[in-house]
Design a protein around this nucleic acid. Structure first.
Lengths: 168, 168
DNA sequence: ATGGCCATGTAACGTGTTACATGATTTC
DNA sequence: GAAATCATGTAACACGTTACATGGCCAT
């Protein structure tokens, strides 16, 4: 149950339409909770129906942008959720299964490991660019911490893949 | 589509019943692909129906353990899947959303960060114990790499949480 | 023989994924 | 005014989660 709360957070930071939210999720918000536009529209509909947000524009025909803002009830719900205890979700990394499968089958896996290594180097570069371009300091230290987590995890991934490839 | 292949891998390493598989997933296999017994039974049923595995025992009444083994078709399917290109799944870490929510709401989050820090320290201890007890060297280097990944990611998590707490 | 545990299931639901559809806006 | 693009949606399905149910086994 994180997506509706991710959307509430994004709308509190800055109200906007479904398509704008989808773009923000692609750019930064979704690095730790990705979402497609279909998911976003579905959740926006539910949040509006439940009275947590409302659409501000009066023109609501099909192809027109619809801006949303968070209502008091939505802010309270987000506060309740943020204060909750929630254990971390288990990790799911299919490549680890494939390593074990390659191990029991005796099949090669180095090429795929190298490909993933490249992808993670690209992701690291993306995070670093964001980190350098951002203006940090002034109440958004926590936002930067999130980005730092992304950087640290990508660095770890890269270090692990390099040493695993060496050991092959 | 990783769970059926995780099960095939586990059954190739060692044939067994659904309940045995569920225990192995809790112990080691599921660190990077957790599964409940309900999921496992569902997949075992499908894999058997599709002719990738078969149950070896003849007694198949409801409360009796049913052992499965991988058929040739199952091994081929696992090889096909292992050789496939698959991009990494996006990470989903709800705590990062909660950090951003706490940031925009101005609410405290340190307690929950500390609680997660404790949980990750425990997980790290579990992985380290497994690493020390295992007998490594002899064709299972890749299995150890998977465990090493677990250790490195937990260490990174801990380092990040400590520095984030300091900065609060 | 019964109470507790173990193994195998069933059912309902929520979320994520993929493919496709339709109305509005812009561009040439 | 036709084509491309953008924004909003619908539909179907796969997967994961939770709660519950049933049959066998074992200890007392």
């Amino acid at each position: 149950m994180s997506l509706p709360h991710a959307i509430l957070t994004a709308l509190l930071e800055q109200p906007g339409s479904g398509a704008e939210l989808a773009r923000r999720f692609d750019k930064s918000f979704g690095f730790f909770w990705p979402a497609t536009h279909q998911q976003i529209y579905r959740e926006l509909g539910r949040l509006e129906k439940d009275g947590l947000i409302r659409s501000t524009g009066r023109d609501s025909s099909r192809g027109r942008a619809k801006d949303y803002e968070v209502l008091g009830e939505g802010r309270r719900e987000l506060q309740r959720w943020t204060a909750e205890q929630q254990d971390p979700r288990p990790v799911r990394e299919a490549l680890m299964i494939r390593l074990r499968a390659a191990s029991v089958l005796g099949d090669p896996i180095a090429d795929e490991l190298e490909r993933h290594l490249r992808l993670h180097r690209e992701q690291l570069a993306t995070y670093r660019a964001l980190d350098e371009r951002g203006n940090w300091g002034g109440g958004n230290e926590l936002q930067r911490s999130v980005l730092t987590a992304g950087i640290m995890f990508e660095e770890t991934w890269i270090a692990w893949a390099e040493q695993t490839l060496d050991a092959l």
